[in-house]
Simulated scan of single mutants.
Amino acid sequence: MSATRIMIIGGPGSGKSRLALRLSRLLDIVVYCVDEAVHDEDGKLRTNSEIDSTVRSWASKHQWIIEGGNSRTYSDRASRATVLVFMKPPRWLRVYRVAIRDKFNLSLLYWSFKYDEFFGLKDEMILGSVGKDIATYTVRTNKDADELLRILARKKY
């Protein structure tokens, strides 16, 4: 298994961006953040079709790490991924991280708290639906993330 296309999903504050950047440095693969597809350069919200088109164009590339939501494109990314990572730390930790990072933005705190109810099933479903040729990992702790980095570093060579 070659870690050339890595899909990272999970709720706000789960550590997706941090893991993606660590993997990028380790594997020398570009990171695409789904949140960056949501707004244009002026901060204006893009349409769903624009967002989906951008994310699908990233997924069509030879190598990538794509981190973030947009479950409408999960199957596009999962069908091309060589590695799928589900970030699933405890809810309290995700909410705490969002509170600190985003200065108590109530909307983000709400979605961080409610993420599992609204999107958790989609995350679990995509994780369970990928083929056996795609390596899947669930990361609950920093120790799990460190172990994943060790595994993928070994498989790089």
Rank of each mutant, 00 (worst) to 15 (best):
D76S: 15
N70G: 01
F86D: 02
L84C: 09
R91Y: 00
W64V: 11
S57M: 08
R56M: 12
I51V: 15
V95P: 01
N48H: 12
K61T: 14
Y96L: 15
W92R: 11
V83S: 03
W92Y: 10
R56K: 15
R97E: 12
S57H: 08
A81G: 03
R56F: 00
V85N: 09
R46I: 07
T54P: 00
V85A: 11
W92I: 06
W64T: 10
V85S: 13
E50H: 07
R77T: 05
S71K: 00
P89D: 07
Q63S: 14
E50R: 09
I65K: 05
Y96D: 03
H62Y: 02
W92G: 00
I66D: 04
V55R: 04
V55Q: 13
S60C: 09
A78D: 02
A78G: 10
V55M: 07
L93N: 01
K61D: 09
Y96S: 11
S60P: 01
R94H: 03
R97A: 09
R77N: 08
G69V: 12
S79Y: 01
R46Y: 07
T54N: 06
S49F: 03
V83M: 03
G69E: 02
K88A: 11
L93P: 00
S79T: 06
A59P: 02
P90E: 14
T73G: 05
I66C: 12
S53A: 13
Y74V: 06
W64D: 10
T73M: 03
K88Q: 13
T47L: 04
S49N: 05
